[in-house]
């Protein structure tokens, strides 16, 4: 999954969380529960592209984003930036290069600091501009994100949700990053404000030559912003590809389910879409998969228990494989694997 112009890549990245177990419980042999939020992710971000990362709540997309930014230490795997693996303790320059725009415009800004204080602190700490140019630079940043200069003297509570999100973007851009990670940047905003932030991010990406990972649960938003899209399920990437081809011709059953579930404006009334009833027919296959897993101790495909096209082969977790017809398209599904094998033969 390597191409020449990648700026950021992630290899076998995992981030597990361990539930707190007290000393006493440990003495009695209680094993801490481990949740595998991110469990072996391979991902590439190319220079100047926007990669949409979609998935439902709890699939690990936010954890993945936070691990890439360095807020969490990876449990396994590595993150490479500009060809070099990032160490556990990043240098200032490395930390600066990957910045994040957060989801909640209400909790993501320090309520006790003015915009100017937030921005100038970063500019000074990272020595980004000469001391006497700090104020000038903060004004430029306001201009960049479409806020009036007087916003510099204001505190977060004086802004609307959309304006706060602009401040959040300015804060990330203050560090002159080359990779911007946007973690659900519009999900907390009203529909009409969402569009302004989506447009702003798209424009900034062009003018500042940024590469961007746009994390969202909203398929329509990802379709709008992403050059490529990666679909995440249960801690793993299940399909990636060029956004348009992925949306028009999804190959992984989960991607198909996701895209099919997005409510469309004015549909012709028809039967309800894939619901539990449809998957009941597969109960026999599912039971067979469960038996095979118990017998061989394999990890089954994580989507097998919801998948409408589950087969016995799903007892072994499929690897993320390239589609022979489209080098940009990768999918982790037994059906796709068969398809590519067939093509190779």
């Amino acid at each position: 999954m390597t191409t020449g112009n990648e700026i950021l890549s992630v290899h076998g990245l995992a981030r597990h969380f361990t539930a707190h177990v007290s000393v006493v419980e440990r003495l009695f042999g209680t094993k801490p529960a481990v949740s595998r939020a991110v469990d072996g992710v391979d991902l590439v971000l190319r220079k100047g592209e926007t990669l949409g990362l979609v998935g439902e709540s709890g699939c690990g997309k936010s954890t993945l984003a936070r691990t890439i930014v360095g807020l969490y230490q990876p449990s396994a795997g590595e993150i490479r930036y500009d060809g070099k693996a990032l160490p556990a303790k990043r240098t200032r320059a490395q930390q600066r290069a990957i910045q994040m725009v957060f989801q909640d415009p209400y909790s993501s800004l320090n309520p006790r600091m003015t915009v100017e204080q937030m921005l100038s602190e970063l500019l000074r700490f990272h020595n980004l501009v000469p001391r006497n140019r700090v104020h000038e630079r903060t004004r430029e940043l306001m201009h960049l994100v479409g806020l009036p200069e007087r916003a510099l003297g204001q505190r977060p509570r004086q802004f609307s949700g959309g304006q706060r999100q602009r401040v959040g973007i300015a804060r990330a851009l203050a560090l002159e990053p080359s990779v911007l990670l946007a973690d659900e940047p519009v999900s907390a905003l009203d529909v009409s404000v969402q569009a302004t932030i989506i447009n702003l991010l798209a424009e900034l990406k062009e003018t500042l030559n940024l590469s961007m990972i746009f994390v969202s649960h909203n398929m329509a938003v990802v379709r709008q912003v992403g050059d490529r899209t990666a679909v995440m399920y249960s801690g793993r990437i299940v399909e990636t590809g060029n956004t348009d081809t992925l949306f028009d011709d999804p190959v992984h059953p989960y991607t198909r389910l996701l895209i099919g579930s997005v409510p469309r404006l004015v549909t012709v009334e028809g039967p309800a879409r894939a619901s539990e009833g449809a998957s009941e027919d597969r109960a026999a296959v599912r039971a067979e998969v469960a038996r095979a897993v118990a017998r061989d101790g394999t990890q089954a495909c994580r989507f097998a228990d919801r998948c409408p096209s589950v087969v016995a082969g799903c007892a072994v977790e499929p690897a993320l494989l390239a589609d022979p017809g489209d080098p940009n398209r990768w999918a982790a599904c037994v059906h796709v694997a068969h398809r590519s094998e067939g093509a190779i033969r």
């Binding site: 360095g70 807020l71 910045q99 957060f102 909640d104 993501s108």
Partner: peptide
């Protein structure tokens, strides 16, 4: 998130 943001900016 503002605490995360401060950490992410390398302070």
């Amino acid at each position: 998130e503002y605490a995360m943001a401060a950490r992410a900016s390398g302070l």
